[in-house]
Design a protein around this nucleic acid. Structure first.
Lengths: 83, 83
DNA sequence: AAAAGAATATCCCATAATAGGATATTAACA
DNA sequence: TGTTAATATCCTATTATGGGATATTCTTTT
């Protein structure tokens, strides 16, 4: 399965993640600290350079104060808005 | 972020995926065909040998006739039942 | 507008993960 | 038990990732 980068879905994912972080008033280094990763990790994720499996996404989303379920809803919403 | 294998979350994920496929009455090769991947891919996924990002998970879950949102609910349910 | 500071992106490359056809195992059952 | 169906494992060339250091870009401040 090819690295699903730059597809509508992937762009929507990045957008959803970014909005959530910024909406939480955190900078990459803040989130990084919360999940015990370097800032470059967060940057790569937001850049689509690094992919996240659901478990990882769950950790991040929770660190940002949301549930995975809610995140997915936002994600789907963004997919529809984009296409 | 380490390969989240064999954690409660990961086991719950595999369980959720497996149940969904079997529940749909499909064998690995059937699902494989639906998502245009070899049978070994599906096996690896179910074995926890291959991780899925949300985009990929979404494709699979849809091929199995479910929404990502519903899948996540089942997933969370399984996490709680396991721990 | 330029300097200073803050936030984010990119580099590098050793290490780890993945692809996928072929083959081995295990399960089902006549 | 022999046979077929279903799933797991092998192998290794290719691709992805880790993460500290550094470069870039964005914001302020004066």
């Amino acid at each position: 399965m090819k690295k699903s980068l730059k597809t509508t879905e992937h762009l929507a994912l990045l957008k959803t993640l970014y909005s959530l972080r910024v909406g939480a008033g955190l900078r990459q280094s803040d989130l990084a600290k919360l999940i015990d990763e370097p800032q470059s990790f967060v940057s790569k994720v937001e850049q689509g350079e690094r992919r996240l499996d659901i478990i990882e996404l769950r950790v991040i989303v929770k660190a940002l104060g949301t549930s995975l379920e809610h995140f997915i809803k936002e994600f789907e919403k963004n997919i529809n808005e984009t296409k």
